[in-house]
Design a protein around this nucleic acid. Structure first.
Lengths: 332, 332
DNA sequence: CTGGCGAATTTTAGCGTTAAACTAGGCCAG
DNA sequence: CTGGCCTAGTTTAACGCTAAAATTCGCCAG
C-alpha cells in the first residue's frame, strides 16, 4: 500500500505538505504542489479514509437508515442521494428490517461514529426505546411515529392527506368507505393518524363513519391487502369506496377487486397514499396522496445540515404538506 | 468520549485485556473478564470501529453498489442483506446513479478500503473502463454487461429467458412480437442478449423475426416505455405480442395499451422480465421471467466470501437460470 | 530445589493521517 | 538596522485500537 509518507519522500517534502495539497487547507506554492501531484500520480497514491477519519473526526458520509429498501423508502432514498452529494458528501443506506433491535443498534455510539450524520426512518421503535438513545450525534428522524422531543423530526401531514382522500370520495358519492390498514384501537402511528383523517372527513360531510369499516393490515403488503379485502368481500361486506393507507395496500386492494370483477371506479372508488410511481401505470390510474418526497428529502437534509454545523437550537418538527393527485380510480 | 484506556483504568487491567475481552481472541480468566465487563457497563463504553479498522484492517462490512435504489435493485438488496447479516457482517448500499464516473469512483482504492468486500451492480461501465480498475480487493460484479475476465461475475440467463418469453407467445398464436427495449444494432449488454433470445425463439419456431419490431427504450422507465409504444401505435404499428425487456418497461407498455383500449391478452399478449412484485397485482397479472433473485443474491455472496477468505482461484462466472412465470397477460 | 513450560496478562510499536505548534527566511515600517 | 510580521513549510504529538513480542507467575517433572 502506498502511503502519504511514500509520496512525501518521492516529492522531497514533508507529509504535512502532501496533506495540505490534498486538503487545500493551507497555501502550497505552485511548484511544490506540482511536485506533490506528480508524485501522487506516479505512485498511484490514494488517501486512506479510515486514517483520515480517525484523526480528523470527519467522515464526509451521511447514512440513511430505512426499514427496507422498498417502495416508499427507495423513493425517498433516491431523492436524498443527490442532495447529499451536492454538498460534497457521500450517502450510504443501511437496512434495519424494521426490527427494533436493529434500529437501536444503528443508533449505537459505535455505528454513529461512522457517519457525520444520520437520517433514521423510524418504523419499529416506540417512543420509549428512542428515549433511551443517548448520543449527541446529528440525527434526524423520519416517519409517522411519535418521537421524543429532543430529536429533529420530519413527518407527513397524515391526517390532512387522509381527510383529502376521504372527502374526495364522499364528494363523488361514496357512502361506505373502507379504511384498509386502519389500525382500529390504536391512538398513534401512521395508520391511526390516517384513520383520524377519514373520521374527520366524515364529520365534515355529515356522514356517519362506521367503525366496522376500519380494517387492519399488519404488514402493509399488497399480498396481505389482497387477501384481507378478498376475505371481506367473500364474507359479503359491501363498500363503495376504499381508502388504502398506502399505495402498496391500494395495489393489493385493486387486485382483490379485479379478482371479483368489481369495477373501479364505477362500483368502488379507491384512493391510496404515497404516490408511488406504479400508480400512474395501473388501469385505472390510482388516485392517491402525494406525500411530497422531494420536500421530505430536502427538509431532512436541511435539519441534518443544521445539526452537523453544530447548531444547538431546539429540535425542529417539520410537517410536510401533502396534496391529492386525482387519477382514474375515483370518479370525475 | 469513553475510550478503551478509560475502561482499562477503571477495571485495573491493561488495554490489551479489555481488547481481548471484547474480541475473544485470547483467554481471559472469568474474574478479570467480569471486572472488565462491569467497567464497560459502568462507563457506557463502545468500541471505536474506525480505530479498530485502521489497526486491524477489517471492517466487517460489505457494500452493495447499485445504479439506483429502485425496482430490480431493491429486490436484490433486500435478499442480500439477510445473507450478509447471517455471517455477522454488516451491509451498506451505495448508489451510483448509473454514471460511469461514479461506478469507477466506487471502485477507487480509497473507497474499497472501507469495506471487506464489494458487490457492484454494473450498469454504466463498459469493459474497457473496468479493465483499468487496479485493485486486489474482493469484488463481485453483478449485471448483464461484458466484464473483464479477472472479475467474479454473476449474471442472468438473459438469452434463455427472452427465448422462453417469446416462445410462450409464439406458441399461443402471436406472430408479430415487438421487443420493447431491444437495442437494435448493439451486440452486448442486457438489451441485446434479450433481443437475441427473441430471435432464437423465432428461428426455433420457424417464424421470421422482423427487425422493425426491435424498438429501443433508452431509460428503461415505465414513462418512456408508455410514450414510445404509444407513439408507435398512433403511427399505425400493428403487433399481437410484446416482449418487454424489463417489467418496468412492461408496466409502461400495459399502460399504453390500456390508454388505447387494446385488450391484453386478447389483442396483444405481453411478457416482461424481472418478476417484480407489482406484476402479481396488475390486471391482468403480468407474465414474466423470474430472474431468481434469491439465487443471484446467494451466488454473489458465495463468490465474495470465497475472495474474502483469500482464495485466489481463477474468477468464476455464474449464470443464474431463469424461469417463465405465467399470469394473465398471455393467453391460456 | 531448579529449570522449563504454559497460561494469563502486559508492553511495545505502530496502523496512516492531520491539528497545532514551531521554524526559517524574506520583507518592510520605523 | 532592528523588530515584528507574514508566508511556506516542518516537526511533534496524537486519534483509539490491536498484532506481536515480552513478562510474570504458578506448577510440576526430574
Amino acid at each position: 500500500m502506498v502511503t502519504m509518507s511514500d509520496v512525501a519522500r518521492e516529492a522531497g517534502v514533508s507529509m504535512m505538505t502532501v496533506s495540505n495539497v490534498l486538503n487545500g487547507h493551507r497555501r502550497v506554492v505552485a511548484p511544490t504542489r506540482d511536485r506533490v501531484l506528480t508524485a501522487i500520480e506516479k505512485l498511484g497514491y490514494e488517501v486512506n479514509l479510515t486514517a483520515r477519519h480517525l484523526r480528523s473526526g470527519r467522515t464526509d458520509t451521511i447514512a440513511l437508515i430505512v426499514p427496507s429498501f422498498h417502495d416508499y423508502f427507495s423513493e425517498v432514498a433516491d431523492r436524498i442521494a443527490p442532495i447529499v452529494e451536492a454538498s460534497g458528501r457521500h450517502l450510504v443506506l443501511e437496512r434495519t428490517g424494521a426490527r427494533p433491535e436493529s434500529e437501536i443498534e444503528s443508533l449505537s455510539i459505535a455505528r454513529l461514529q461512522m457517519y457525520d450524520g444520520v437520517v433514521l426512518s423510524v418504523a419499529g421503535l416506540d417512543r420509549e426505546r428512542l428515549e433511551s438513545v443517548r448520543t449527541r450525534a446529528p440525527i434526524v428522524l423520519l416517519g409517522e411515529r411519535e418521537v421524543p422531543a429532543r430529536f429533529d423530526h420530519v413527518r407527513l401531514a397524515n391526517e390532512e392527506g387522509a381527510r383529502l382522500a376521504t372527502a374526495h370520495m364522499l364528494a363523488r358519492g361514496s357512502r361506505r368507505i373502507l379504511v384498509l390498514g386502519g389500525a382500529p384501537g390504536e391512538t398513534s402511528g401512521m395508520a391511526s393518524l390516517r384513520r383520524a383523517g377519514w373520521e374527520a372527513a366524515h364529520r365534515a360531510a355529515g356522514v356517519p363513519a362506521d367503525g366496522a369499516l376500519v380494517v387492519p393490515v399488519t404488514t402493509y403488503s399488497a399480498r396481505e391487502s389482497r387477501e384481507v379485502l378478498g376475505g371481506l368481500l367473500e364474507a359479503g361486506l359491501r363498500v363503495d369506496g376504499i381508502f388504502a393507507v398506502t399505495d402498496t395496500v391500494a395495489l393489493g386492494a385493486m387486485a382483490a377487486l379485479a379478482d371479483r370483477g368489481i369495477g373501479v371506479p364505477d362500483d368502488v372508488q379507491v384512493v391510496g397514499f404515497d404516490d408511488l410511481d406504479v400508480g400512474k401505470y395501473l388501469s385505472p390510474g390510482l388516485t392517491t396522496i402525494d406525500p411530497n418526497h422531494d420536500e421530505v428529502a430536502r427538509s431532512a437534509i436541511r435539519l441534518l445540515e443544521r445539526r452537523m454545523a453544530g447548531d444547538d437550537d431546539p429540535p425542529e418538527r417539520v410537517v410536510v404538506p401533502v396534496r391529492l393527485v386525482v387519477r382514474g380510480s375515483t370518479r370525475p
